[in-house]
Computed example of a mutant assay.
Amino acid sequence: MAIQLHQNDLPADVDLGNTVAVDSETMGLNLVRDRLCLVQLSAGDGNVHLVQFADRDYSAPNLRALLRDPHVTKIFHYARFDLAMFEAHFGEPTGPVYCTKTASKLVRTYTDRHGLKELCKELLGIDLSKQQQSSDWGAAELTPEQMSYAASDVLYLHQLKEILDRLLARENRLELAQQIFDFLPVRARLDLLGWSEVDIFAHS
């Protein structure tokens, strides 16, 4: 595995293909209070690019272009949070989207354990370490342990997508999954606008 760290943007000559795994690290889980610190990307080839925003410069023209490219599918695990965080910092929606957590909830109905660690363990036989999950991602310099942890969050998303797609097809839920993925950027925008805890589809 090779990890490349970049400051404030993805280099213009990086080509990640038409399906890229994406994740983010933030100062916390509050979309209003907490800032975006790191974006991780992988083409599924075992290599990872980390884009760090230590000085809070979110202009990032190359990364923005990739995130909004209609010909590149972005694979997330729990896309709802990352999409909202990206729109809050980059000012525009990300898409098209695939979410492994959503796909898991549609087909692994025999369990309520849909975290990335659980998915990797069951479907790939890989035991992920989550030790650095709550570390300080706003630090000016990331530790090797932080970078390794961040990379692991995108390294296996292509493999998970392949397996989950087979399960979605088996359960006749591929079309349903795609419709949900298409809606996720809107769901993320609702979170940003204050409807994160309100079910607008409820009767009451």
Rank of each mutant, 00 (worst) to 15 (best):
A79T: 03
L160W: 05
K105V: 03
A65I: 07
Q146L: 03
E175M: 06
Y58W: 10
D199V: 02
D45S: 13
R166T: 05
N30A: 12
H114M: 07
L190Y: 11
P61D: 09
N62G: 08
S148T: 12
Q146W: 12
L41G: 02
K105H: 07
C99Y: 11
G95C: 10
W195Q: 05
N30H: 14
V51G: 13
L168V: 06
K74W: 07
S148E: 13
S135Y: 00
L116F: 02
E175W: 06
F183H: 12
D182Q: 14
R170A: 14
L142Y: 12
D13K: 11
V107L: 04
T111E: 09
I126S: 07
V48Y: 10
D15C: 10
H77E: 03
S104D: 06
L10T: 08
D69E: 07
H114Q: 04
I126E: 08
T94S: 15
A84W: 06
V186E: 06
L192A: 02
N47L: 05
Q179W: 04
F183E: 15
A140T: 14
Q52F: 02
T73Q: 07
S59H: 13
L157C: 02
G91Y: 10
D82L: 04
A2V: 10
A177L: 09
C37H: 05
D34P: 04
S196G: 01
C120N: 14
V32A: 12
G28A: 10
I163S: 00
R189F: 03
V39I: 15
M1E: 08
L63I: 09
I163R: 15
L128A: 12
L123S: 05
R187P: 00
D15H: 12
N8H: 14
Y98H: 14
A79W: 02
G46F: 12
E162D: 11
A169V: 06
I180Q: 13
T73L: 13
A103R: 12
H114L: 08
S135R: 02
C99Q: 11
E175L: 08
H89N: 13
D34V: 07
L31I: 15
H203S: 15
A88W: 07
Y98T: 05
N172W: 09
D23F: 05
Q52M: 07
V97L: 04
Q179M: 14
A2P: 02
Q40E: 13
M147W: 04
P70L: 05
H114W: 02
F90S: 09
D136F: 01
M1A: 13
G28Y: 06
L119P: 08
D69T: 03
Q4F: 11
A60E: 10
W137N: 03
L116P: 06
L160F: 05
A103W: 10
E118M: 01
D191K: 03
Q179Y: 05
P144E: 04
G91N: 11
A169K: 12
A12G: 08
A139W: 01
A188H: 02
D45E: 13
S204E: 11
L164Y: 00
L38Y: 03
L128D: 11
I180V: 14
S104A: 15
D45I: 13
C99N: 11
Q7T: 13
L123R: 06
P144S: 09
